[in-house]
Design a protein around this nucleic acid. Structure first.
Lengths: 159, 159
DNA sequence: CAAGTCGGTTCGGCGATCGAACCGACCGGA
DNA sequence: TCCGGTCGGTTCGATCGCCGAACCGACTTG
């Protein structure tokens, strides 16, 4: 208890443990392949072999990951033909709500990792404007950055 | 993301490979530990042993990950004392801009993985409002979801 | 001088991942 | 009927990367 925290930190944009949501989320989608599988499902790929060929992932690994994502409720397996029996994997609502994570990864990669500009741009379909993902405060009516974020214990905080 | 090609699309709506920004980003921060290391640095942890103890990560792995993150420009290593020589790891601008990803992961985990509510909440410091991360269209002036997103080839698209 | 801290590296074991092979159900063509 | 191909897997042996434990040097504190 004597541990003096490092120089007074007022802002800690992201905080957690041990039930940290980031940690929990990463246990589901934090491995090498899951995010890429999900990216593919967002792109409209739904079938085993489509995804396998696109990613070059070993079949056993894909099989296991899909099972894991279905068990978690992120994907659902839906039969689309009876003879021969064929299933496809579709995003559930839970899965679709991962989109900000994918978009954030994409924007960050575009900005910092691509030398010749974004390979793909996302647009707001109704108007064609480039998609902007950011912190927006409804109260203040402004966009803001990570330095204006503070954290507090929430209702799920134990201890 | 909705541009999920009805049957008759010959070309790929999203160029997912191999220059895909999501893939590139995941090569840097998509392994089991990197995101957690970064979460800790956002929380204000800067030193090797602090992070190691917090995560329970093997030292060899932490050492290698920190090197990788420093090489990538996400963290910087800064000497903060000479005798004995001690370094700390700090987020660069590139690193700080990962915050939307962490926040998105956190929000998703809060919503779908926590039964008793978020362990931590983030607020917009100036006004105390809960942080909202989302798609906002400056042109239309509205928030929107993934179903209103379409994708197009960008300036970095080859082929 | 001994014990402890900090930031590592080295090492042997082991579990996850890899590619290749195999499989059953089905389809289309010759 | 036989042949080849597709689809969605499972099984298997080899290999890769992660694991915890031990060790290390530079330094501080008691």
């Amino acid at each position: 208890m004597t541990s003096a925290a490092p120089p007074s930190r007022a802002h800690r944009p992201v905080e957690g443990r041990p039930g940290c949501s980031i940690e929990q989320a990463l246990q589901l989608v934090g491995d090498r392949w899951s995010m890429l599988i999900l990216r593919d499902t967002f792109r409209g790929l739904r079938r085993f072999d489509q995804i396998r060929r696109d990613l070059g992932i070993p079949k056993a690994v894909l099989s296991e990951r899909l099972r894991k994502l279905v068990d978690a409720g992120i994907l659902e397996r839906r039969r689309y033909q009876e003879h021969p029996p064929r299933d496809e994997y579709r995003l559930t609502r839970m899965g679709r709500e991962l989109s900000p994570i994918l978009v954030a990864l994409m924007h960050w990669g575009d900005r910092w990792l691509q030398e010749s500009g974004p390979p793909t741009v996302l647009v707001h379909e109704p108007c064609g404007t480039d998609v902007h993902l950011g912190f927006h405060c409804a109260t203040c009516g402004v966009d803001f950055g990570p330095l204006e974020i503070a954290s507090r214990p929430g209702p799920g905080a134990l201890r």
